[in-house]
Design a protein around this nucleic acid. Structure first.
Lengths: 151, 151
DNA sequence: GGTATATAGTTGTAGATACAACTATATGAG
DNA sequence: CTCATATAGTTGTATCTACAACTATATACC
Protein backbone atom coordinates (compact mmCIF):
# COMPACT_ATOMS: atom_id res chain seq x y z
CA UNK A 1 0.00 0.00 0.00
CA UNK A 2 1.80 3.00 -1.46
CA UNK A 3 2.27 6.21 0.34
CA UNK A 4 0.53 9.03 -1.41
CA UNK A 5 -3.08 8.09 -2.07
CA UNK A 6 -2.52 5.29 -4.55
CA UNK A 7 -5.11 2.70 -5.45
CA UNK A 8 -3.05 0.12 -3.58
CA UNK A 9 -3.05 2.08 -0.36
CA UNK A 10 -6.73 2.86 -0.50
CA UNK A 11 -7.57 -0.77 -1.17
CA UNK A 12 -5.37 -1.73 1.76
CA UNK A 13 -7.15 0.69 4.06
CA UNK A 14 -10.58 -0.52 3.03
CA UNK A 15 -9.51 -4.12 3.44
CA UNK A 16 -7.90 -3.69 6.86
CA UNK A 17 -10.56 -1.41 8.28
CA UNK A 18 -13.22 -3.80 7.06
CA UNK A 19 -11.45 -6.56 8.94
CA UNK A 20 -11.41 -4.39 12.06
CA UNK A 21 -15.07 -3.58 11.71
CA UNK A 22 -16.21 -7.17 11.32
CA UNK A 23 -14.01 -8.28 14.21
CA UNK A 24 -15.63 -5.57 16.30
CA UNK A 25 -19.14 -6.48 15.19
CA UNK A 26 -18.66 -10.20 15.86
CA UNK A 27 -16.39 -10.15 18.88
CA UNK A 28 -18.82 -12.42 20.71
CA UNK A 29 -18.44 -15.28 18.22
CA UNK A 30 -16.30 -18.37 18.58
CA UNK A 31 -14.89 -18.00 15.07
CA UNK A 32 -12.82 -15.23 13.54
CA UNK A 33 -13.01 -13.08 10.45
CA UNK A 34 -11.50 -15.62 8.08
CA UNK A 35 -13.73 -18.59 8.85
CA UNK A 36 -16.75 -16.28 8.95
CA UNK A 37 -16.14 -15.27 5.36
CA UNK A 38 -15.97 -18.88 4.26
CA UNK A 39 -19.16 -19.53 6.15
CA UNK A 40 -20.86 -16.66 4.36
CA UNK A 41 -19.84 -18.15 1.04
CA UNK A 42 -21.46 -21.40 2.08
CA UNK A 43 -24.70 -19.59 2.82
CA UNK A 44 -24.79 -18.80 -0.89
CA UNK A 45 -24.10 -22.32 -2.05
CA UNK A 46 -24.30 -25.14 0.44
CA UNK A 47 -22.71 -28.47 -0.43
CA UNK A 48 -19.63 -27.03 -2.11
CA UNK A 49 -16.37 -28.90 -1.87
CA UNK A 50 -13.40 -27.17 -0.28
CA UNK A 51 -11.84 -26.51 -3.65
CA UNK A 52 -15.03 -24.95 -4.95
CA UNK A 53 -15.18 -22.86 -1.82
CA UNK A 54 -11.60 -21.74 -2.32
CA UNK A 55 -12.36 -20.76 -5.87
CA UNK A 56 -15.54 -18.92 -4.99
CA UNK A 57 -13.56 -16.67 -2.66
CA UNK A 58 -10.41 -16.76 -4.76
CA UNK A 59 -8.48 -17.92 -1.74
CA UNK A 60 -5.71 -20.45 -1.42
CA UNK A 61 -6.99 -23.94 -0.66
CA UNK A 62 -4.76 -24.22 2.40
CA UNK A 63 -6.44 -21.18 3.90
CA UNK A 64 -9.77 -22.81 3.16
CA UNK A 65 -8.69 -26.06 4.80
CA UNK A 66 -7.84 -24.30 8.04
CA UNK A 67 -10.96 -22.15 8.03
CA UNK A 68 -13.17 -25.17 7.43
CA UNK A 69 -11.44 -27.00 10.26
CA UNK A 70 -12.39 -24.21 12.63
CA UNK A 71 -15.94 -24.04 11.31
CA UNK A 72 -16.33 -27.77 11.90
CA UNK A 73 -14.79 -27.62 15.35
CA UNK A 74 -17.01 -24.71 16.36
CA UNK A 75 -20.09 -26.55 15.06
CA UNK A 76 -21.03 -24.38 12.08
CA UNK A 77 -20.22 -26.82 9.32
CA UNK A 78 -20.46 -30.56 8.68
CA UNK A 79 -18.15 -32.32 6.25
CA UNK A 80 -19.32 -35.31 4.25
CA UNK A 81 -17.16 -37.39 1.98
CA UNK A 82 -18.40 -37.66 -1.58
CA UNK A 83 -19.85 -41.14 -2.07
CA UNK A 84 -18.39 -41.59 -5.54
CA UNK A 85 -15.09 -39.74 -5.30
CA UNK A 86 -13.52 -40.05 -1.89
CA UNK A 87 -11.16 -37.15 -2.43
CA UNK A 88 -13.95 -34.61 -2.01
CA UNK A 89 -15.58 -33.27 1.08
CA UNK A 90 -18.94 -31.56 0.72
CA UNK A 91 -19.68 -28.85 3.23
CA UNK A 92 -23.05 -28.41 4.93
CA UNK A 93 -24.42 -25.85 7.35
CA UNK A 94 -25.67 -26.58 10.85
CA UNK A 95 -28.51 -24.73 12.56
CA UNK A 96 -25.93 -22.78 14.50
CA UNK A 97 -24.64 -21.46 11.19
CA UNK A 98 -28.08 -20.74 9.82
CA UNK A 99 -29.00 -18.76 12.92
CA UNK A 100 -25.99 -16.56 12.33
CA UNK A 101 -26.72 -15.77 8.70
CA UNK A 102 -28.95 -12.71 9.22
CA UNK A 103 -26.39 -11.01 11.43
CA UNK A 104 -23.71 -11.55 8.83
CA UNK A 105 -25.80 -10.17 5.98
CA UNK A 106 -26.76 -7.19 8.08
CA UNK A 107 -23.17 -6.37 8.92
CA UNK A 108 -22.19 -6.71 5.29
CA UNK A 109 -24.95 -4.41 4.17
CA UNK A 110 -23.89 -1.93 6.78
CA UNK A 111 -20.29 -2.05 5.64
CA UNK A 112 -21.24 -1.53 2.00
CA UNK A 113 -23.43 1.35 3.11
CA UNK A 114 -20.56 2.88 5.06
CA UNK A 115 -18.14 2.62 2.15
CA UNK A 116 -20.53 4.12 -0.35
CA UNK A 117 -21.79 6.90 1.86
CA UNK A 118 -22.22 10.03 -0.21
CA UNK A 119 -22.28 8.08 -3.46
CA UNK A 120 -25.14 8.52 -5.90
CA UNK A 121 -26.87 5.34 -7.07
CA UNK A 122 -25.01 5.65 -10.34
CA UNK A 123 -21.69 6.00 -8.56
CA UNK A 124 -22.44 2.95 -6.44
CA UNK A 125 -22.96 0.93 -9.57
CA UNK A 126 -19.84 2.35 -11.16
CA UNK A 127 -17.47 1.59 -8.29
CA UNK A 128 -18.84 -1.92 -8.22
CA UNK A 129 -18.22 -2.39 -11.94
CA UNK A 130 -14.77 -0.85 -11.79
CA UNK A 131 -13.68 -2.96 -8.84
CA UNK A 132 -15.00 -6.04 -10.55
CA UNK A 133 -12.93 -5.27 -13.61
CA UNK A 134 -9.85 -4.43 -11.55
CA UNK A 135 -10.15 -7.67 -9.56
CA UNK A 136 -10.57 -9.55 -12.78
CA UNK A 137 -7.48 -7.89 -14.22
CA UNK A 138 -5.56 -8.84 -11.08
CA UNK A 139 -6.72 -12.44 -11.29
CA UNK A 140 -5.74 -12.79 -14.93
CA UNK A 141 -2.37 -11.19 -14.28
CA UNK A 142 -1.76 -13.70 -11.54
CA UNK A 143 -2.84 -16.63 -13.69
CA UNK A 144 -0.35 -15.50 -16.32
CA UNK A 145 2.44 -15.72 -13.76
CA UNK A 146 2.51 -11.95 -13.23
CA UNK A 147 3.39 -11.28 -16.85
CA UNK A 148 1.69 -8.51 -18.73
CA UNK A 149 -0.41 -9.93 -21.50
CA UNK A 150 -0.57 -7.91 -24.73
CA UNK A 151 -3.45 -5.45 -25.00
CA UNK B 1 -14.70 -10.80 1.62
CA UNK B 2 -18.25 -11.79 0.79
CA UNK B 3 -19.16 -14.53 -1.57
CA UNK B 4 -20.98 -13.22 -4.57
CA UNK B 5 -19.04 -10.38 -6.11
CA UNK B 6 -19.34 -7.88 -3.31
CA UNK B 7 -17.15 -4.83 -2.91
CA UNK B 8 -15.55 -6.48 0.08
CA UNK B 9 -14.56 -9.57 -1.81
CA UNK B 10 -13.19 -7.66 -4.76
CA UNK B 11 -11.16 -5.41 -2.49
CA UNK B 12 -9.85 -8.51 -0.74
CA UNK B 13 -8.79 -10.08 -4.03
CA UNK B 14 -7.02 -6.95 -5.21
CA UNK B 15 -5.28 -6.60 -1.87
CA UNK B 16 -4.13 -10.23 -1.64
CA UNK B 17 -3.12 -10.58 -5.25
CA UNK B 18 -1.19 -7.34 -5.03
CA UNK B 19 0.65 -8.77 -2.06
CA UNK B 20 1.44 -11.89 -4.10
CA UNK B 21 2.63 -9.84 -7.03
CA UNK B 22 4.98 -7.65 -5.03
CA UNK B 23 6.35 -10.66 -3.17
CA UNK B 24 7.04 -12.27 -6.53
CA UNK B 25 8.62 -9.14 -7.99
CA UNK B 26 10.89 -8.60 -4.98
CA UNK B 27 11.66 -12.16 -3.95
CA UNK B 28 15.37 -11.35 -4.08
CA UNK B 29 15.18 -8.70 -1.35
CA UNK B 30 16.05 -9.10 2.30
CA UNK B 31 12.84 -7.40 3.42
CA UNK B 32 9.23 -8.40 2.89
CA UNK B 33 6.11 -6.72 1.59
CA UNK B 34 5.23 -4.93 4.80
CA UNK B 35 8.54 -3.21 5.46
CA UNK B 36 8.84 -2.38 1.76
CA UNK B 37 5.63 -0.39 1.91
CA UNK B 38 6.86 1.60 4.87
CA UNK B 39 10.10 2.22 3.03
CA UNK B 40 8.18 3.51 0.02
CA UNK B 41 6.33 5.93 2.26
CA UNK B 42 9.67 7.21 3.51
CA UNK B 43 10.79 7.87 -0.06
CA UNK B 44 7.98 10.42 -0.19
CA UNK B 45 8.84 12.11 3.06
CA UNK B 46 12.14 11.36 4.70
CA UNK B 47 12.63 12.28 8.34
CA UNK B 48 9.16 11.28 9.48
CA UNK B 49 8.71 9.92 12.98
CA UNK B 50 7.24 6.44 13.38
CA UNK B 51 3.89 7.83 14.35
CA UNK B 52 3.80 10.07 11.30
CA UNK B 53 4.75 7.09 9.21
CA UNK B 54 1.95 5.04 10.76
CA UNK B 55 -0.52 7.79 10.02
CA UNK B 56 0.65 8.28 6.46
CA UNK B 57 -0.11 4.63 5.72
CA UNK B 58 -3.03 4.46 8.13
CA UNK B 59 -1.41 1.51 9.83
CA UNK B 60 -1.21 0.59 13.50
CA UNK B 61 1.90 1.95 15.17
CA UNK B 62 2.90 -1.48 16.40
CA UNK B 63 3.04 -2.73 12.83
CA UNK B 64 5.18 0.28 12.00
CA UNK B 65 7.52 -0.42 14.90
CA UNK B 66 8.20 -3.95 13.68
CA UNK B 67 8.58 -2.92 10.05
CA UNK B 68 11.02 -0.15 10.97
CA UNK B 69 13.01 -2.61 13.06
CA UNK B 70 13.47 -4.82 10.02
CA UNK B 71 14.32 -1.89 7.79
CA UNK B 72 16.99 -0.79 10.24
CA UNK B 73 18.38 -4.30 10.65
CA UNK B 74 18.54 -4.81 6.88
CA UNK B 75 20.28 -1.47 6.46
CA UNK B 76 17.62 0.54 4.65
CA UNK B 77 16.79 3.00 7.38
CA UNK B 78 18.58 4.93 10.11
CA UNK B 79 16.80 6.06 13.25
CA UNK B 80 17.77 9.26 15.02
CA UNK B 81 16.35 10.46 18.30
CA UNK B 82 14.84 13.92 18.19
CA UNK B 83 17.17 16.32 19.95
CA UNK B 84 14.44 18.23 21.71
CA UNK B 85 11.88 15.55 22.41
CA UNK B 86 13.47 12.24 23.20
CA UNK B 87 10.30 10.27 22.60
CA UNK B 88 10.57 10.66 18.84
CA UNK B 89 12.66 8.80 16.36
CA UNK B 90 13.19 10.38 12.94
CA UNK B 91 13.68 7.96 10.08
CA UNK B 92 16.28 8.45 7.34
CA UNK B 93 17.12 6.51 4.20
CA UNK B 94 20.44 4.86 3.44
CA UNK B 95 21.96 4.56 -0.02
CA UNK B 96 20.81 0.95 -0.09
CA UNK B 97 17.26 2.24 0.22
CA UNK B 98 17.72 4.96 -2.37
CA UNK B 99 19.08 2.47 -4.87
CA UNK B 100 15.94 0.43 -4.50
CA UNK B 101 13.49 3.27 -5.04
CA UNK B 102 13.25 3.06 -8.85
CA UNK B 103 12.42 -0.63 -8.79
CA UNK B 104 9.67 -0.01 -6.28
CA UNK B 105 8.12 2.82 -8.27
CA UNK B 106 8.29 0.74 -11.42
CA UNK B 107 6.55 -2.20 -9.82
CA UNK B 108 3.87 0.07 -8.43
CA UNK B 109 3.26 1.67 -11.78
CA UNK B 110 3.00 -1.74 -13.31
CA UNK B 111 0.49 -2.89 -10.72
CA UNK B 112 -1.67 0.18 -11.23
CA UNK B 113 -1.45 -0.41 -14.96
CA UNK B 114 -2.51 -4.02 -14.51
CA UNK B 115 -5.49 -3.13 -12.36
CA UNK B 116 -6.73 -0.44 -14.68
CA UNK B 117 -6.22 -2.36 -17.89
CA UNK B 118 -9.10 -1.68 -20.23
CA UNK B 119 -10.09 1.48 -18.36
CA UNK B 120 -10.46 4.75 -20.20
CA UNK B 121 -8.55 7.72 -18.80
CA UNK B 122 -11.77 9.02 -17.38
CA UNK B 123 -12.52 5.68 -15.73
CA UNK B 124 -9.03 5.59 -14.21
CA UNK B 125 -9.69 8.94 -12.62
CA UNK B 126 -13.10 7.89 -11.44
CA UNK B 127 -12.03 4.66 -9.72
CA UNK B 128 -9.31 6.61 -7.99
CA UNK B 129 -11.77 9.22 -6.75
CA UNK B 130 -14.31 6.62 -5.67
CA UNK B 131 -11.77 4.54 -3.78
CA UNK B 132 -10.47 7.64 -2.10
CA UNK B 133 -13.96 8.50 -0.91
CA UNK B 134 -14.66 4.93 0.18
CA UNK B 135 -11.38 4.74 2.13
CA UNK B 136 -12.20 8.07 3.71
CA UNK B 137 -15.65 6.81 4.68
CA UNK B 138 -14.06 3.71 6.19
CA UNK B 139 -11.58 5.78 8.17
CA UNK B 140 -14.25 8.09 9.56
CA UNK B 141 -16.45 5.12 10.46
CA UNK B 142 -13.57 3.60 12.37
CA UNK B 143 -12.76 6.87 14.16
CA UNK B 144 -16.36 7.04 15.29
CA UNK B 145 -16.03 3.63 16.90
CA UNK B 146 -17.85 1.87 14.06
CA UNK B 147 -21.01 3.85 14.64
CA UNK B 148 -22.94 5.25 11.72
CA UNK B 149 -22.88 9.01 11.81
CA UNK B 150 -26.02 10.77 10.61
CA UNK B 151 -26.08 11.70 6.94
C1' DG C 1 -3.66 -55.28 -13.30
C1' DG C 2 0.12 -51.71 -12.78
C1' DT C 3 2.31 -47.52 -13.20
C1' DA C 4 2.17 -42.42 -14.37
C1' DT C 5 -0.38 -38.49 -13.78
C1' DA C 6 -3.94 -35.45 -12.00
C1' DT C 7 -6.81 -33.74 -8.30
C1' DA C 8 -8.57 -32.82 -3.23
C1' DG C 9 -7.13 -31.89 0.89
C1' DT C 10 -3.43 -31.31 4.88
C1' DT C 11 0.74 -29.78 7.38
C1' DG C 12 4.99 -26.96 7.99
C1' DT C 13 6.38 -22.60 7.95
C1' DA C 14 6.80 -17.72 7.52
C1' DG C 15 5.07 -12.90 7.03
C1' DA C 16 1.69 -9.08 7.87
C1' DT C 17 -1.32 -7.10 10.91
C1' DA C 18 -4.11 -5.47 14.98
C1' DC C 19 -5.23 -4.96 19.89
C1' DA C 20 -3.93 -4.89 24.78
C1' DA C 21 -0.66 -3.83 27.88
C1' DC C 22 3.62 -2.06 28.67
C1' DT C 23 7.93 1.56 29.14
C1' DA C 24 9.88 5.99 28.58
C1' DT C 25 9.63 10.69 27.94
C1' DA C 26 7.29 15.15 28.16
C1' DT C 27 3.75 18.56 29.63
C1' DG C 28 0.64 20.88 32.70
C1' DA C 29 -1.88 21.85 37.11
C1' DG C 30 -1.37 22.62 41.88
C1' DC D 1 8.81 20.69 42.57
C1' DT D 2 5.51 16.87 42.14
C1' DC D 3 2.07 14.22 40.52
C1' DA D 4 -1.46 13.36 36.83
C1' DT D 5 -1.93 13.00 32.14
C1' DA D 6 -0.60 12.68 27.33
C1' DT D 7 2.35 10.97 23.70
C1' DA D 8 6.02 7.88 21.12
C1' DG D 9 7.45 3.66 20.81
C1' DT D 10 7.81 -1.60 22.19
C1' DT D 11 6.45 -6.36 23.40
C1' DG D 12 3.09 -10.25 23.96
C1' DT D 13 -0.15 -12.52 21.58
C1' DA D 14 -3.52 -14.01 18.25
C1' DT D 15 -5.45 -14.26 13.50
C1' DC D 16 -5.25 -14.41 8.52
C1' DT D 17 -2.87 -15.74 4.66
C1' DA D 18 0.17 -17.87 1.01
C1' DC D 19 3.64 -21.03 -0.77
C1' DA D 20 6.09 -25.47 -0.64
C1' DA D 21 5.82 -30.01 0.24
C1' DC D 22 3.15 -33.63 1.55
C1' DT D 23 -0.79 -37.65 1.62
C1' DA D 24 -4.67 -39.85 -0.32
C1' DT D 25 -7.64 -40.91 -3.88
C1' DA D 26 -8.87 -41.36 -8.76
C1' DT D 27 -8.10 -41.71 -13.83
C1' DA D 28 -5.68 -43.05 -18.02
C1' DC D 29 -2.53 -45.55 -20.70
C1' DC D 30 0.01 -49.69 -21.49
Amino acid sequence: MPSPKSIGKMVSVIHRYGHSYFDHEFSDLDIGHGPRNFLAALFCREGMTQDELSESLMMDKTTTARAVKQLVQAGYVLRKRDEDDHRYYHLYLTDKARDLAPRIWDARSKWTEVLSKGFTEEEKELIYIFLDRAADNAAKFREEGFKLSPG
